[in-house]
Design a protein around this nucleic acid. Structure first.
Length: 134
DNA sequence: GCCAACGTTGGC
DNA sequence: GCCAACGTTGGC
């Protein structure tokens, strides 16, 4: 199983919206690298949910329910979506500041490539973030 | 609100 | 194929 992190501006689609909806189609990704990462996602993979811009913290864990399929919101065949469901919330959000200060997380794509919106996480990184959030 | 980083577009 | 211009993201 692989681990991932996705970013969302909470003003646009927050963790609470995902919990309320019970399931969402992760659409709107228009970046090749992010798209390529989504194509690697398998059902059951866990996905950390990061609130960008206003909050800057990892707030919960989602799960891939359906692997990549063509994005129905565009006629352009090169874009895909995945379906995500909420898995569980973090007890405490893990802030970008905490991530920056943790030696074990210095290689995380979130820090190295700030604009990437869908990124893989090493199992160790996932475990560290999980421990910080609980 | 500003700006750095970075991806995309289009002229040559 | 290069590169300037431009648009977007996201941290501060």
């Amino acid at each position: 199983m692989q681990h991932w992190l996705v970013k969302s501006e909470p003003e646009k689609y927050a963790w609470a919206d995902l919990v309320r909806d019970g399931r969402t189609m992760w659409d709107g990704v228009r970046n090749y690298q992010a798209r390529n990462n989504m194509q690697q996602m398998q059902p059951g993979d866990l996905v950390l949910y990061y609130h960008s811009v206003s909050e800057k913290a990892v707030v919960g864990i989602a799960k891939v329910e359906k692997a990549a399929y063509p994005d129905p919101t565009t006629d352009d065949p090169k874009w895909v979506v995945v379906d995500l469901v909420p898995y569980r919330a973090f007890k405490e959000p893990v802030t970008l500041q905490q991530i920056k200060e943790d030696k074990r997380l210095q290689d995380i794509a979130l820090l190295r490539q700030s604009r990437l919106s869908v990124m893989p996480l090493k199992a160790e990184e996932f475990d560290v973030l999980l421990a910080l959030g609980n």
